[in-house]
């Protein structure tokens, strides 16, 4: 790995300032970025650690729902979000393995927007708000394709706000080696309707399955999507599963998530 200057600011203001350096890159839990740097696929000249900023950590109820600091590790979300948003806590508890969950953070996952990551599906299905040092971004505007987001250069996610659904569940079909989602579906039922977000399946990254949302808003039962099909043409096809296989998984897992949500 190429060398770099390491800085660890204690406030968002200092982090924003440090991100102004040429070649600066934010580091959260590092569970994706550090392996990427080892492969020299990323070579920042200044690495700005966000894990020493206390105002970016923690889980609490507040205006608009559940507020999760961007630098909060998955293990903390798994332990502390369960009382108000059990499906979200369960998702966090299923990411990677225990040592990865000690370090990896929600903000890091969202900033990276891996097409097979778990958190983007929860954020999109919940209609959550991604809060940065500059603005609030609605989930529907935030995700812009594989590894692509609405974040500008130097912009830092500070927290994520989740409206609490009436019912929700996340069902993931594990890629057993990486424990990323081969396909994962997050279903959330709100008074205004049902939202269904799919990760791991599409070459365009996390997406909402509109036909299933309409069917489930009318009748929240697994059988409601029985007549629907998913177009396989935009799906990821690789040695772990063909496009058709993933398209089928989207439907199967959506049904399972609806059943699990109860």
């Amino acid at each position: 790995m190429h060398n770099f200057d390491f800085v660890k600011p204690a406030s968002i203001a200092d982090a924003v300032k440090a991100m102004g350096h040429d070649g600066a890159q934010a580091l959260s839990g590092g569970q994706t970025l550090i392996p990427t740097m080892k492969q020299r696929l990323a070579a920042p000249t200044v690495l700005v650690s966000l894990t020493g900023i206390s105002e970016m950590k923690g889980v609490c109820m507040g205006e608009g729902g559940l507020h999760i600091g961007a630098a909060t590790p998955h293990a903390v979300v798994a332990a502390e979000a369960g009382a108000v948003y059990p499906a979200l806590a369960a998702l966090a508890a299923g990411i990677g393995d225990p040592a990865v969950r000690s370090k990896g953070t929600i903000g890091g996952s969202l900033a990276n927007n891996d097409p097979a990551a778990c958190y983007p599906s929860a954020v999109l299905a919940s209609g959550a708000t991604v809060v940065t040092n500059r603005r609030k971004i609605a989930a529907d505007d935030y995700f812009q394709g594989m590894f692509t987001t609405a974040l500008d250069e130097g912009e830092i996610i500070t927290e994520v706000v989740f409206p609490i659904p009436q019912k929700a569940a996340y069902v993931k079909f594990n890629q057993p080696a990486s424990r990323f989602a081969l396909t994962g579906v997050f279903v959330a039922k709100y008074p205004g309707g049902v939202r269904v977000a799919v990760t791991g399946a599409s070459a365009s990254g996390v997406f909402r399955w509109a036909e299933a949302e309409a069917a489930l808003s009318a009748n929240f039962a697994a059988g409601a999507i029985a007549g629907l099909t998913v177009d396989a043409s935009g799906m990821i096809g690789d040695l772990h599963g063909t496009q058709a296989y993933r398209a089928n998984l989207v439907k199967v897992l959506t049904g399972r998530a609806v059943t699990a949500a109860g």
Binding site: F6, K8, L27, G30, Q31, I34, P35, L47, S49, T51, A75, D97, P98, A99, V100, S102, K103
Partner: peptide
């Protein structure tokens, strides 16, 4: 692989994926 797991402030971490300065 997890061969490098140590505890940092009581939590298990993979020490090959944490910077010492962090």
């Amino acid at each position: 692989c997890g061969a490098c797991v140590v505890h940092v402030d009581g939590k298990p971490v993979k020490s090959c994926t944490v910077f010492a300065q962090d």
